[in-house]
Amino acid sequence: MESKTEQPLEQEKEVKGPGRLSRMFLTLYDVYKFIARFFKEGFLPPYELKELFRQCYEIGYRSALLISTTGFITGIVFTKQSRPSLSEFGATSWLPSLVGIALLRTLAPLLTGLIAAGKVGSSIGAELGSMRVTEQIDAMEVSATNPFKFLVSTRVLAATITIPILTFYTAMVGMCGALLNVSLSENTSAKAFFQSSLEQITFLDFTASTIKAILFGFTIGVVGCYQGYNSSKGTEGVGKAANSAVVIAMFLIFIEEVVSVQFFSLFRT
Protein backbone atom coordinates (compact mmCIF):
# COMPACT_ATOMS: atom_id res chain seq x y z
CA MET A 1 0.00 0.00 0.00
CA GLU A 2 1.58 3.27 -1.04
CA SER A 3 1.82 6.20 1.35
CA LYS A 4 -0.31 9.14 0.31
CA THR A 5 2.34 11.59 1.35
CA GLU A 6 5.37 9.70 0.10
CA GLN A 7 6.85 10.49 3.48
CA PRO A 8 9.44 7.88 4.37
CA LEU A 9 8.99 6.49 7.82
CA GLU A 10 12.30 5.98 9.53
CA GLN A 11 11.20 2.84 11.32
CA GLU A 12 10.03 1.27 8.05
CA LYS A 13 13.29 2.16 6.35
CA GLU A 14 15.43 0.70 9.09
CA VAL A 15 13.66 -2.58 9.49
CA LYS A 16 13.44 -3.48 5.80
CA GLY A 17 17.24 -3.36 5.90
CA PRO A 18 18.23 -4.12 2.30
CA GLY A 19 21.89 -4.37 1.41
CA ARG A 20 23.97 -1.33 0.53
CA LEU A 21 23.66 -1.87 -3.23
CA SER A 22 19.91 -2.45 -3.04
CA ARG A 23 19.59 0.65 -0.89
CA MET A 24 21.45 2.66 -3.48
CA PHE A 25 19.08 1.50 -6.23
CA LEU A 26 16.08 2.13 -3.98
CA THR A 27 17.33 5.68 -3.37
CA LEU A 28 17.92 6.21 -7.09
CA TYR A 29 14.38 5.01 -7.78
CA ASP A 30 13.11 7.33 -5.07
CA VAL A 31 14.99 10.27 -6.63
CA TYR A 32 13.60 9.32 -10.05
CA LYS A 33 10.05 9.37 -8.60
CA PHE A 34 10.79 12.73 -6.95
CA ILE A 35 11.95 14.26 -10.25
CA ALA A 36 9.04 12.69 -12.14
CA ARG A 37 6.66 14.20 -9.60
CA PHE A 38 8.26 17.60 -10.14
CA PHE A 39 7.65 17.41 -13.89
CA LYS A 40 4.14 16.04 -13.34
CA GLU A 41 3.04 18.64 -10.81
CA GLY A 42 5.38 21.58 -11.25
CA PHE A 43 3.92 22.87 -14.48
CA LEU A 44 0.25 22.28 -13.79
CA PRO A 45 -2.11 24.81 -12.15
CA PRO A 46 -2.61 26.07 -9.53
CA TYR A 47 0.64 28.01 -9.92
CA GLU A 48 2.46 29.30 -6.85
CA LEU A 49 3.84 32.35 -8.65
CA LYS A 50 4.24 34.50 -5.56
CA GLU A 51 6.31 31.84 -3.85
CA LEU A 52 8.29 31.25 -7.07
CA PHE A 53 9.25 34.93 -7.33
CA ARG A 54 10.09 35.01 -3.62
CA GLN A 55 12.38 32.01 -4.05
CA CYS A 56 14.05 33.54 -7.14
CA TYR A 57 14.71 36.70 -5.16
CA GLU A 58 15.98 34.72 -2.14
CA ILE A 59 18.36 32.62 -4.26
CA GLY A 60 19.70 35.65 -6.12
CA TYR A 61 19.96 37.77 -3.00
CA ARG A 62 21.60 35.05 -0.92
CA SER A 63 24.33 34.36 -3.47
CA ALA A 64 24.88 37.78 -5.06
CA LEU A 65 27.58 39.14 -2.75
CA LEU A 66 29.62 35.96 -2.62
CA ILE A 67 29.31 35.44 -6.37
CA SER A 68 30.33 39.02 -7.09
CA THR A 69 33.41 38.74 -4.90
CA THR A 70 34.43 35.33 -6.20
CA GLY A 71 33.79 36.23 -9.83
CA PHE A 72 35.76 39.45 -9.56
CA ILE A 73 38.72 37.79 -7.86
CA THR A 74 38.67 34.91 -10.34
CA GLY A 75 38.81 37.41 -13.22
CA ILE A 76 41.83 39.15 -11.69
CA VAL A 77 43.68 35.96 -10.77
CA PHE A 78 43.03 34.16 -14.04
CA THR A 79 44.26 37.14 -16.05
CA LYS A 80 47.31 37.54 -13.85
CA GLN A 81 48.22 33.84 -14.12
CA SER A 82 47.61 33.64 -17.88
CA ARG A 83 49.64 36.70 -18.84
CA PRO A 84 53.18 35.21 -18.42
CA SER A 85 52.40 32.19 -20.60
CA LEU A 86 50.90 34.35 -23.32
CA SER A 87 53.81 36.81 -23.12
CA GLU A 88 56.26 34.03 -23.91
CA PHE A 89 54.59 33.67 -27.30
CA GLY A 90 53.99 37.39 -27.72
CA ALA A 91 50.27 36.76 -27.60
CA THR A 92 49.12 39.04 -24.78
CA SER A 93 46.61 40.56 -27.18
CA TRP A 94 44.74 37.27 -26.93
CA LEU A 95 44.28 37.74 -23.19
CA PRO A 96 40.78 39.31 -23.32
CA SER A 97 39.40 36.60 -25.58
CA LEU A 98 41.08 33.87 -23.51
CA VAL A 99 39.55 35.22 -20.32
CA GLY A 100 36.17 35.72 -21.98
CA ILE A 101 36.03 32.17 -23.33
CA ALA A 102 37.33 30.60 -20.12
CA LEU A 103 34.85 32.52 -18.01
CA LEU A 104 31.84 31.86 -20.18
CA ARG A 105 32.56 28.24 -21.05
CA THR A 106 33.62 26.91 -17.67
CA LEU A 107 34.61 29.25 -14.87
CA ALA A 108 31.35 31.18 -14.52
CA PRO A 109 28.96 28.19 -14.64
CA LEU A 110 31.18 26.10 -12.39
CA LEU A 111 31.86 28.83 -9.84
CA THR A 112 28.22 29.87 -9.72
CA GLY A 113 27.09 26.27 -9.45
CA LEU A 114 29.48 25.47 -6.62
CA ILE A 115 28.76 28.64 -4.67
CA ALA A 116 25.01 28.22 -5.11
CA ALA A 117 25.30 24.57 -4.06
CA GLY A 118 26.88 25.77 -0.82
CA LYS A 119 24.67 28.77 -0.16
CA VAL A 120 21.37 27.83 -1.73
CA GLY A 121 21.48 24.02 -1.58
CA SER A 122 22.28 23.94 2.13
CA SER A 123 19.66 26.55 2.85
CA ILE A 124 16.95 24.65 0.97
CA GLY A 125 17.97 21.37 2.61
CA ALA A 126 17.95 22.88 6.09
CA GLU A 127 14.71 24.80 5.60
CA LEU A 128 12.71 21.87 4.23
CA GLY A 129 14.35 19.50 6.68
CA SER A 130 13.34 21.67 9.58
CA MET A 131 9.81 21.94 8.17
CA ARG A 132 9.65 18.16 7.91
CA VAL A 133 10.77 17.44 11.47
CA THR A 134 8.52 20.13 12.96
CA GLU A 135 5.56 18.66 11.04
CA GLN A 136 5.00 21.85 9.02
CA ILE A 137 4.96 19.80 5.81
CA ASP A 138 2.39 17.44 7.34
CA ALA A 139 0.39 20.50 8.40
CA MET A 140 0.26 21.59 4.76
CA GLU A 141 -0.82 18.10 3.72
CA VAL A 142 -3.67 17.96 6.18
CA SER A 143 -4.88 21.43 5.28
CA ALA A 144 -5.53 20.11 1.76
CA THR A 145 -2.54 21.92 0.26
CA ASN A 146 -0.03 20.07 -1.87
CA PRO A 147 3.28 20.78 -0.07
CA PHE A 148 5.31 19.33 -2.92
CA LYS A 149 3.94 21.93 -5.28
CA PHE A 150 4.34 24.81 -2.84
CA LEU A 151 7.73 23.91 -1.42
CA VAL A 152 9.56 21.71 -3.91
CA SER A 153 8.32 22.78 -7.34
CA THR A 154 8.84 26.46 -6.59
CA ARG A 155 12.36 25.99 -5.23
CA VAL A 156 13.52 23.71 -8.04
CA LEU A 157 12.09 26.07 -10.66
CA ALA A 158 13.55 29.11 -8.92
CA ALA A 159 17.03 27.54 -8.80
CA THR A 160 16.74 26.48 -12.45
CA ILE A 161 15.79 30.01 -13.50
CA THR A 162 18.12 31.96 -11.23
CA ILE A 163 21.40 30.04 -11.58
CA PRO A 164 21.76 30.83 -15.34
CA ILE A 165 21.14 34.52 -14.61
CA LEU A 166 23.75 34.41 -11.85
CA THR A 167 26.13 32.60 -14.20
CA PHE A 168 26.09 35.44 -16.73
CA TYR A 169 26.38 37.91 -13.89
CA THR A 170 29.48 36.03 -12.64
CA ALA A 171 30.96 36.08 -16.14
CA MET A 172 30.35 39.81 -16.37
CA VAL A 173 31.86 40.53 -12.95
CA GLY A 174 34.81 38.26 -13.80
CA MET A 175 35.39 40.24 -16.98
CA CYS A 176 35.41 43.42 -14.91
CA GLY A 177 38.07 41.88 -12.67
CA ALA A 178 40.09 40.91 -15.74
CA LEU A 179 39.74 44.42 -17.13
CA LEU A 180 41.02 45.87 -13.88
CA ASN A 181 44.07 43.64 -14.02
CA VAL A 182 44.74 44.44 -17.67
CA SER A 183 44.25 48.18 -17.11
CA LEU A 184 46.82 48.17 -14.33
CA SER A 185 49.53 46.77 -16.59
CA GLU A 186 48.76 48.22 -20.00
CA ASN A 187 46.84 51.02 -21.56
CA THR A 188 43.65 49.34 -22.79
CA SER A 189 40.22 50.92 -22.99
CA ALA A 190 37.23 49.05 -21.56
CA LYS A 191 35.52 49.16 -24.97
CA ALA A 192 38.48 47.56 -26.74
CA PHE A 193 38.84 44.95 -24.00
CA PHE A 194 35.20 43.85 -24.13
CA GLN A 195 35.13 43.96 -27.91
CA SER A 196 38.18 41.76 -28.05
CA SER A 197 36.68 39.34 -25.50
CA LEU A 198 33.31 39.04 -27.14
CA GLU A 199 34.43 38.62 -30.73
CA GLN A 200 35.79 35.13 -30.02
CA ILE A 201 32.67 33.98 -28.18
CA THR A 202 30.39 31.90 -30.37
CA PHE A 203 26.70 31.11 -30.15
CA LEU A 204 27.68 27.57 -29.14
CA ASP A 205 29.65 28.92 -26.16
CA PHE A 206 26.66 30.92 -25.07
CA THR A 207 24.25 28.00 -25.56
CA ALA A 208 26.50 25.48 -23.83
CA SER A 209 26.97 27.79 -20.87
CA THR A 210 23.24 28.39 -20.57
CA ILE A 211 22.40 24.69 -20.76
CA LYS A 212 25.05 23.85 -18.17
CA ALA A 213 23.81 26.56 -15.83
CA ILE A 214 20.22 25.35 -16.18
CA LEU A 215 21.39 21.82 -15.41
CA PHE A 216 23.38 22.99 -12.38
CA GLY A 217 20.43 25.00 -11.08
CA PHE A 218 18.08 22.07 -11.51
CA THR A 219 20.55 19.78 -9.74
CA ILE A 220 20.97 22.16 -6.80
CA GLY A 221 17.20 22.56 -6.47
CA VAL A 222 16.38 18.87 -6.74
CA VAL A 223 19.15 17.69 -4.41
CA GLY A 224 18.40 20.34 -1.77
CA CYS A 225 14.68 19.70 -1.90
CA TYR A 226 15.03 15.90 -1.95
CA GLN A 227 17.34 15.88 1.06
CA GLY A 228 15.22 18.34 3.04
CA TYR A 229 11.82 16.94 2.08
CA ASN A 230 12.83 13.43 3.10
CA SER A 231 14.82 14.27 6.20
CA SER A 232 14.12 12.57 9.52
CA LYS A 233 15.67 11.99 12.96
CA GLY A 234 15.04 15.49 14.31
CA THR A 235 17.73 18.14 14.40
CA GLU A 236 20.42 15.61 13.48
CA GLY A 237 18.44 14.89 10.33
CA VAL A 238 18.21 18.58 9.47
CA GLY A 239 21.98 18.97 9.72
CA LYS A 240 22.47 15.84 7.66
CA ALA A 241 20.03 17.08 5.02
CA ALA A 242 21.83 20.42 4.70
CA ASN A 243 25.22 18.75 4.54
CA SER A 244 24.17 16.10 2.01
CA ALA A 245 22.49 18.75 -0.13
CA VAL A 246 25.83 20.54 -0.54
CA VAL A 247 28.10 17.52 -0.92
CA ILE A 248 25.88 15.64 -3.38
CA ALA A 249 25.08 18.74 -5.44
CA MET A 250 28.78 19.68 -5.75
CA PHE A 251 29.72 16.13 -6.73
CA LEU A 252 26.97 16.03 -9.37
CA ILE A 253 27.95 19.47 -10.70
CA PHE A 254 31.51 18.26 -11.33
CA ILE A 255 30.23 15.16 -13.10
CA GLU A 256 27.83 17.23 -15.19
CA GLU A 257 30.69 19.59 -16.06
CA VAL A 258 32.87 16.75 -17.33
CA VAL A 259 30.03 15.20 -19.32
CA SER A 260 28.90 18.51 -20.81
CA VAL A 261 32.45 19.49 -21.82
CA GLN A 262 32.76 16.17 -23.67
CA PHE A 263 29.33 16.58 -25.21
CA PHE A 264 29.74 20.15 -26.45
CA SER A 265 33.25 19.46 -27.76
CA LEU A 266 31.54 17.23 -30.34
CA PHE A 267 30.03 20.37 -31.87
CA ARG A 268 33.27 22.35 -31.97
CA THR A 269 35.53 22.12 -34.98
Partner: peptide, 17 residues
Amino acid sequence: LELRLKVGFSFQNSALY
Protein backbone atom coordinates in the same frame (compact mmCIF):
# COMPACT_ATOMS: atom_id res chain seq x y z
CA LEU B 1 -7.33 16.45 -0.41
CA GLU B 2 -11.06 17.13 -0.63
CA LEU B 3 -11.69 14.93 2.40
CA ARG B 4 -8.98 16.73 4.34
CA LEU B 5 -10.93 19.96 3.95
CA LYS B 6 -13.50 18.37 6.24
CA VAL B 7 -10.99 16.98 8.72
CA GLY B 8 -8.95 19.38 10.83
CA PHE B 9 -5.72 18.25 12.46
CA SER B 10 -4.16 20.07 15.39
CA PHE B 11 -0.53 19.01 15.81
CA GLN B 12 1.21 18.33 19.10
CA ASN B 13 3.79 21.03 18.44
CA SER B 14 1.28 23.26 16.64
CA ALA B 15 3.31 23.02 13.39
CA LEU B 16 2.86 26.70 12.63
CA TYR B 17 4.71 27.85 9.50
